[in-house]
């Protein structure tokens, strides 16, 4: 177990290095720079600014000093917001995205698993067809369609919920973004659960459990659900990536001050350090979630050996 975690952390190092290297040189290959304003700065001022942030040094030197900074946990100052460091900006925006992501993955799990189980129990029944129809919709209607439609219905027309904004993470402001983010994930999770449950319900150990006279509820929850959930656990990593993509769009539509919205703006403005900081944090998060997923898999399915 510890050896497994150690090995995975050893792979995580090179992965982060690749992430940083690719992002660093791609960002620098982009035309334009952080100090291109509507009105051109006097050359002397621009020179001074570049010198101040070390942008006048050779690229490899900048790269190495950036790497050194990241190792020490220092992401440098923002180039666009002179009074803020990248760490400040991350601290300000990350909680919004994390809260959204966490809430929607929990909602997706609750809805997806229960729909999947019910659909499997009533296989080919009305509930099954309804649930799987919903799952297809969830996969085929992208977030940027569901979001405006839900805003139109619950915001503008019925006026039950605000059209957007964060408001310090108040519950009414969270409802629509979380639903929109959770929907595609819930759809995939319900399909995975249904397939797993159908397989589990026809397997020998469930028949044995029934033959022993266990109540149906115990058979389903203790004996069928557990093996059915293993595919869900290995989906945790991809799910995180999906949420990430979704949050870019959702934060834009609902005008939420999260990382996703900030990332696109920063990339357009060539705020090198902020973009880099966000990519490093996101990559770290995805790596962490994949690791947790693998560890959980070993807990749920004892046949999986961690080596």
């Amino acid at each position: 177990m510890l050896r497994f975690i150690g090995r995975r952390l050893l792979v995580a190092g090179p992965t982060l290095l690749v992430v940083i290297t690719l992002a660093f040189f791609m960002m620098r290959a982009a035309p334009g720079g952080p100090f291109d304003a509507e009105r051109r700065l006097p050359p002397a001022v621009e020179e001074n600014l570049k010198a101040r942030y070390g942008l006048d040094r050779p690229l490899t030197e900048q790269y190495l000093s950036y790497l050194g900074g990241v190792v020490r946990g220092d992401f440098g100052p923002s180039l666009k917001y002179p009074d803020k460091s990248v760490a400040d900006i991350l601290q300000q925006n990350a909680p919004v995205s994390l809260k959204l992501g966490l809430a929607s993955i929990l909602l997706a799990l609750a809805v997806g698993v229960s729909l999947g189980v019910l659909a499997a129990l009533r296989r080919n029944g009305l509930l099954d067809i309804g649930a799987m129809g919903l799952a297809v919709l969830g996969v085929c209607v992208p977030t940027f369609v569901t979001a405006p439609l839900l805003i139109l219905l619950f915001g503008s027309t019925l006026q039950w919920l605000p059209n957007g904004g964060w408001n310090g993470g108040a519950l009414p402001n969270m409802v629509l973004p979380v639903i929109v983010l959770a929907l595609p994930q819930a759809a995939i999770l319900s399909r995975l659960t249904r397939a797993g449950m159908i397989e589990a319900l026809t397997s020998g150990h469930v028949r044995t459990a029934r033959a022993r006279g266990l109540p149906e509820f115990a058979v389903i929850v203790r004996h069928a659900l557990r093996p059915a959930l293993t595919p869900l656990v290995s989906y945790l990593g991809p799910a995180a990536a999906g949420l990430l993509t979704g949050s870019l769009v959702v934060e834009k539509i609902f005008n939420l001050p999260g990382l996703g919205k900030f990332f696109v703006i920063s990339a357009m403005q060539r705020d090198y350090t902020v973009v880099m900081g966000m990519i490093v944090v996101y990559a770290g998060l995805v790596l962490l979630l994949n690791l947790i997923g693998d560890l959980l898999l070993a807990v749920v399915d004892p046949r999986v050996r961690l080596t």
Partner: peptide, 23 residues
């Protein structure tokens, strides 16, 4: 396959966005 593993962990949507912004 290690190469694939490493690439798998990249937040790709960000790189695509960077590519679009850059070029």
């Amino acid at each position: 396959m290690r190469v694939v593993d490493v690439l798998y962990a990249l937040p790709f949507i960000f790189f695509v966005i960077l590519l679009m912004v850059a070029f």
